[in-house]
């Protein structure tokens, strides 16, 4: 007879918020969660991050928004969203029933935008706010706030003053020193960090002799960025004592385990969920299977061991 092992424990505590498991759908790749319902019950997820929300509605960028690359995807969506007011009024009541943690991803162009947007959305029933100071696809603000440690600290401190929910700050891999930005955010009061957002890249249409994207550059995601994301997750986890949520190119349960070994409290899945809608469901199952096979009872046994 087979030995009766207990099922591994996947529960994660993310700054006071208890997640069923460490698998969170990443912002911008999961809409507002409703698109996934035909494929699986979203309540199985640890949580999901909404599409980037801004104070006012944004139409997003015009022209080409996607370009596939070797093992990756470049995007320039430009934070298309209905604005926080419409999100809270029309969408949130519909998605609350999902029974999983809802993390509001917030973008902006100015300090005032960020502060007002985070305050507004944090008054609603969302579980957590993810402050996106790392979007490479908006002309003003966005990533600029996540490049310099002093600027990042300033925006985090200002937002934190009025934000009523735990604040997770999403870091940019395009910062010259992501560890310095991470430390500055922690000091300024961030409750958690998430990383990485997309890596700024360039695609050129040589026949037309012009950039593929109207904004010239675009953000690279997918399996191609995983080694960089893993390295940054490890560097940042070692430098701060708040929880770090890792992402970048995760496709399988073993990829998720690697990020946890690199120090991540939880992980997010973006591009792989676009490739195949049921990816997050599979990753949860694969992670459980990996843990049973390797005789790992809980994630804390492997967290940060690298």
């Amino acid at each position: 007879m087979e030995e009766n092992k207990t099922t591994p424990n996947l529960v994660v505590d993310l700054c006071g918020l208890s997640l069923k498991n460490p698998v969170i759908a990443a912002s911008g790749t999961f809409g507002f969660g409703e698109e996934i319902e035909p494929f699986y019950d979203p309540s199985i997820l640890g949580g999901f991050c909404t599409k980037g929300l801004t104070r006012r509605p944004r139409p997003g960028n015009s022209g080409i928004r996607l370009q596939e690359t070797r093992a990756g995807l470049m995007n320039s969506i430009g934070l298309q969203n209905p604005g926080i007011e419409a999100f809270v009024r029309d969408i949130l009541p519909r998605i609350r029933r999902f029974g999983t943690a809802i993390i509001a991803n917030v973008g902006g162009e100015t300090m005032e935008d960020y502060v007002a947007a985070c305050y507004e959305v944090s008054k609603s029933s969302v579980d957590m706010v993810e402050l996106n100071i790392s979007c490479p696809n908006v002309k003003h603000g966005g990533m600029a706030f996540g490049i310099d440690p002093d600027v990042a600290a300033k925006v985090v401190r200002s937002v934190k003053r009025s934000c009523r929910k735990p604040l997770m700050v999403k870091l940019s891999p395009n910062a010259p020193d992501i560890v310095a930005v991470a430390r500055a955010c922690e000091k300024a009061g961030a409750d958690a960090l998430s990383l990485i957002n997309t890596i700024s890249g360039l695609a050129i249409d040589v026949h037309a002799r012009r950039p593929v994207f109207a904004n010239v550059t675009a953000g690279l995601s997918g399996p191609a960025i995983k080694p960089i994301a893993l390295r940054m997750t490890r560097d940042v986890s070692k430098a701060v004592s708040i929880p770090v949520v890792g992402m970048g190119g995760i496709e399988t349960g073993e990829d998720a385990a690697a990020f946890i070994m690199a120090g991540a409290a939880a992980i997010q899945v973006g591009t792989a969920g676009l490739v195949r809608p049921d990816t997050c469901q599979r990753i949860i199952a694969e992670l459980l299977e990996f843990m049973s096979r390797e005789d790992i009872g809980s994630l804390s046994e492997i967290r940060g061991i690298i």
């Binding site: 911008g28 790749t29 999961f30 809409g31 698109e35 996934i36 035909p38 494929f39 599409k51 997003g60 080409i64 928004r65 996607l66 370009q67 995807l73 995007n75 969506i77 298309q80 591009t271 969920g273 676009l274 809608p277």
Partner: peptide, 12 residues
């Protein structure tokens, strides 16, 4: 051009 085909990415 599409990535997800299900309305989740706003790429199309």
């Amino acid at each position: 051009r599409m990535a997800c085909g299900i309305g989740a990415c706003l790429g199309c």
